[in-house]
């Protein structure tokens, strides 16, 4: 009988590698310093990261506060987009103009989001384009570019957990997180 012994070492090492990786650096990230600095800089974002399916309750809690803040002249920090579009509508332009005035010397993170339809990578790019469109608009209104950070979550962080146009139109959005 022909004998062919094949290499299980690879498989074993693979498994061991994975297990030891889990044990030693489970989530610390390849660059702890960088991760630490970043999470310090974006504390609010850190919380957002914990909500993988965008629990509507938690997010609404946060934005409800902002909406209430309008009494103090604080604008709504959210605009919406049409399907597969990063164009800023006239309604959104008014919201962003208000935001630009209110931001003044504050730093802001612009989060770009998409609805659940479409592929993950296309939506990551589309979310980035939406955030960038907001950034360009804010710059045009006098906000210093260095104060604006953009991040795309693609379809990972829906605001509303529904599966129809009513939910999708709310999820195609950009959130401004001062």
């Amino acid at each position: 009988m022909m004998t062919k012994r094949f290499h299980f070492l690879a498989v074993t090492l693979l498994t061991l590698g994975l297990l030891s990786a889990c044990g030693s650096v489970p989530e610390a990230g390849p660059d702890g310093g960088q991760a630490g600095a970043a999470s310090g800089r974006t504390g609010d974002d850190g919380r957002a990261l914990g909500r993988a399916d965008g629990s509507a309750g938690a997010l609404d809690g946060r934005t409800a506060g902002m909406a209430d803040g309008k009494m103090n002249g604080e604008p709504e920090h959210r605009i919406y987009f049409a399907l597969n579009s990063d164009e800023i509508s006239s309604t959104s332009a008014a919201v962003l103009t208000h935001n630009a005035r209110w931001l003044g010397k504050r730093n802001v993170t612009v989060e770009g989001h998409c609805d659940e339809r479409g592929t993950r990578e296309y939506n990551l790019a589309l979310g980035q384009k939406r955030a960038d469109a907001v950034k360009q608009f804010l710059i045009s209104q006098g906000v210093e570019p260095s104060r604006i950070r953009t991040v795309s979550y693609g379809k990972e962080r829906p605001l509303v957990n529904g599966h129809g146009e009513a939910a999708w139109s709310k999820n195609r959005r950009a959130d401004l997180v001062p």
């Binding site: 693979l14 989530e27 390849p30 660059d31 970043a38 999470s39 974002d45 991040v151």
Partner: peptide
Amino acid sequence: YVSGEPRIYKWELYTGKKSL
């Protein structure tokens, strides 16, 4: 998104080493 930003990491499966 471990740093708060979407970044590409490499994971060496034999050693468990991860790098940005």
